[in-house]
Amino acid sequence: MSVLTADSRRDLEIHRYPVLIYGLVPLVALVLQAWLPRLLGKYAWFDLPLVVTVYFALGRRSPIQGTIMGCAVGLFEDALTHHAIGINGIAKTICGFMAASVGIRIDVENKIIRVGLIFLLSLLSSALYIFVNRFLLGLALETDWFAELYKALGNSAIALVAFPFLDRFQLRD
């Protein structure tokens, strides 16, 4: 794993996208996340909004943008559930921040690193979600950790395909 200084990576490899992509891709991810479980049932082991959040946070390499992106996507996800609005928001805010912070320091073009990172961040997101529910809000919520593990694996698999696809929308100088 190659480690570079933050300034050099930021200057060299900031990915830029058309403005429409920043709005459209998260929206498509949210719609698919809400629609696909209807077809796949209990086998919908993925979290597309998280994948998109991590992708943009890694590409933009800006913790602030990653934080805002994660917050917006998480709140949107919460709005589609019947839970309190902010639980997913907090989890994905931290994940977006972490992804951007890590993306500054490591080479995220490597596929193995990407997959490993999305796997760990998925578990972190699940842990934060449960932490907020149980300890911050004091709500009784049972958790199936195997499902969270499968979800992390699913996110990793999707990232393998989705990240190269989304890279096509980059603006090249």
Binding site: A34, P37, K42, T81
Partner: peptide, 14 residues
């Protein structure tokens, strides 16, 4: 049914 919540912690549909 046109959609779900997208979360297995929130089992609801639209």
């Amino acid at each position: 049914i046109i959609g779900t919540s997208g979360s297995d912690q929130s089992r609801l549909f639209y």
